[in-house]
């Protein structure tokens, strides 16, 4: 059964058709990759799913529910987590606090209880912390727990952002170029983590990625887009062999 259903999705910014008639569905437990040259509309598809943008037309269904009219802050609660291409962490907080912020949808206390720090708040904090520690262990972030984000190397920040998304406890995770800017070793770690997310955590992964070796290694299916339009969909090998895809990458004015 498909977990995410995107049907005829389109958004136009003035004259720019950033996304124009994209349809795909992601099955539960699948790793699904979106590829395409720069400016193809990949991140915009993510922003549409996470409701940052309102589509010009088309629908998005998650878990059988039409979420096209939902607010951006209602998405995490449904079980959709995301990372950002340009890392959007809370720079002046520690790694631990960033991950704890990922537990927001699970909060069970209101601000009055928080101000009084009632025993319930403490109990909840322990539980949030326990969950976050699992993420820290999974991503091997122990050494950075109490470090401020602002001073961390790029590669670590990237991992923290994945951690924050995992702290939500999602069903579906959207990773926008998880390997960009990472070293070969770091990219290999990301590949292992994606495998584990699927296998051990039962997560469904939708990712945008330029690194074709990573795409080949982890994804079940691939969708190629260019100029906001779908080019081809299938296994990684099928898509890469598709003539339109080859043309988009090698042909006129391809930047990637």
């Amino acid at each position: 059964m498909s977990l995410l259903d995107v049907n005829d999705l389109a958004i136009h910014f003035g004259g720019v058709k950033a996304v124009d008639g994209v349809s795909f569905s992601v099955d539960e437990g699948e790793v699904f990759a979106i590829i395409g040259p720069n400016g193809a509309g990949k991140s915009t598809i993510f922003n549409l799913i996470s409701r940052v943008y309102q589509p010009t037309r088309g629908t998005i269904r998650f878990d059988g529910q039409n979420i096209t009219g939902f607010k951006a802050h209602d998405i995490a609660g449904l079980g959709i987590a995301r990372t950002f291409q340009n890392i959007e962490l809370f720079d002046h907080s520690t790694v631990l606090d960033n991950l704890l912020m990922g537990r927001h949808t699970h909060r069970a206390t209101n601000f009055v209880q928080d101000i009084l720090f009632l025993p319930k708040v403490r109990r909840e904090e322990r539980e949030h912390r326990r969950r976050v520690e699992q993420v820290i262990e999974f991503l091997e972030l122990e050494a950075y727990r109490k470090k401020m984000i602002a001073g961390l190397p790029y590669g670590v920040r990237k991992v923290v952002e994945i951690g924050r998304a995992l702290a939500i406890g999602p069903k579906l995770i959207l990773l926008d170029e998880p390997a960009s800017g990472l070293s070969v070793e770091e990219t290999r770690d990301v590949a292992f983590w994606i495998e584990d997310m699927r296998r051990d955590m039962g997560l469904t992964v939708l990712m945008v990625e330029h690194d074709m070796s990573l795409v080949n290694q982890v994804s079940d299916r691939v969708l190629a887009v260019a100029n906001g339009q779908p080019l081809a969909m299938g296994t990684p090998a099928e898509v890469q062999a598709h003539p339109d895809v080859m043309a988009a990458y090698l042909g006129t004015g391809a930047a990637a």
Binding site: E88, G102, H104, T105
Partner: peptide
């Protein structure tokens, strides 16, 4: 107390990145 609880963290989240705060359900 506020600053060591979910409410305080949501304040900091909104301060540092609105777009991620929303993505976390805030």
């Amino acid at each position: 107390n506020l600053m060591r609880s979910p409410t305080g963290r949501s304040f900091l989240a909104v301060r540092d990145s609105e777009v991620s705060a929303r993505a976390l359900g805030i």
